[in-house]
């Protein structure tokens, strides 16, 4: 048995070391990752995948810790993937979400993994999707993905999650602007955390006001749940809303979403393959080197050169 097969088998058996190794593979080795995912794919699709996003400091990690406890109380096993940004300058990352969840570490029914975005333009690490599949195949009932960032990365979370929870808190100032922008579109549930603070109701009203601007008729109207993550207050209600949304999806959208998700993944896979096969082919040709020399000589710019190469390719 190859190493990858061995790890895949371990993942399916729920072995934690194998899960950890598998996630390392999808972070580092695209080809082995493909083989690994192929091996486990038939065993995925059972977990409910929840995306938690919102501004830094809103209390997402603290809230996840309480959510996991409540899920455990309800008899569910849970996987957590906490994504933090990679520094664009050093390539390093400080993965600090786990600090708030350390008390869950010894629970056999919980697996927590920190990941860095690795400067993936989409914000959310490309490997996150595969990591979710690994935890799903390993039998976790619920998988929670935490991301932070502005704009596109939060929108990207939709591609991974079935239920998107946008977490906000009073006192984060301009961050409400971010909510008005991309986040409104993607939220299935809003959380106003730090409800122990007196201006929490103001935040609720702000969100309601923005929601009312959208007068489209919707099958699902995103509820707003107030929580105090430090005490766990409101967390059972949040889980109830998430469960309601899950059932809603099952009734109406699960089919459609998985279709779209499968399509997006298929298109992405095709794009990867096509691009690399064209590049490999071009590289073997004489004119590739010739035009390369022209670029070096500043006789042509790279974009025009690429166009030229590809146009000849089509003819």
């Amino acid at each position: 048995m190859s190493k990858v097969e061995e790890i895949a088998k371990g993942v399916l058996a729920g072995d934690k070391r194998s899960i950890a190794k598998a996630i390392t593979i999808v972070e580092n080795k695209p080809e082995e990752a493909q083989r690994l995912i192929a091996a486990i794919y038939p065993h995925t699709g059972k977990a409910h995948i929840i995306g938690l996003t919102g501004p830094g400091g809103a209390g997402k990690s603290t809230l996840i810790e309480k959510m996991v406890r409540e899920y455990r109380r309800r008899g569910k096993t849970v996987g957590v993937i906490a994504v933090d940004p990679t520094s664009p300058f050093t390539g390093g990352a400080f993965l600090g979400d786990r600090i708030r969840m350390q008390e869950l570490t010894m629970d056999e029914g919980v697996f927590i993994r920190s990941m860095a975005t690795r400067n993936n333009p989409g914000g959310i690490a490309k490997a996150t999707k595969d990591a979710v599949k690994i935890l799903d195949a390993a039998g976790k009932d619920v998988i929670i993905v935490e991301t932070v960032g502005a704009g596109q990365s939060e929108v990207d979370i939709v591609k991974v999650a079935q239920t998107v929870v946008v977490v906000h808190a009073p006192g984060l100032g301009d961050e409400i602007q971010a909510i008005k922008a991309g986040l409104m579109e993607i939220a299935d549930i809003f959380v106003v955390n730090k409800a122990d603070r007196e201006n929490a109701d103001k935040t609720v009203i702000d969100i309601q006001a923005v929601l009312q601007l959208d007068d489209r008729v919707k099958a699902w109207n995103p509820p707003i749940v107030k929580t105090v993550a430090v005490t766990g207050e409101g967390v059972p209600q949040l889980l109830d809303k998430i469960e309601e949304h899950r059932q809603f999806l099952q009734r109406e959208l699960l089919q459609k979403r998985s279709w779209e998700k499968a399509q997006a993944e298929l298109v992405e896979a095709i794009r990867d393959k096509v691009t690399s096969s064209i590049i490999e082919k071009l590289k073997r040709e004489k004119r590739f080197e010739k035009i390369l020399q022209q670029i070096v000589n500043r006789e042509i710019d790279p974009a025009t050169a690429a166009e030229k190469l590809l146009n000849q390719e089509m003819e």
Binding site: S87, G92, A93, F94, L95, R98, I99, Q102
Partner: peptide
């Protein structure tokens, strides 16, 4: 912080 600034991914337990 120093290890992060050197390009590593650092997990801290608290």
């Amino acid at each position: 912080r120093a290890l992060r600034d050197a390009g590593m991914e650092v997990i801290y337990t608290g």
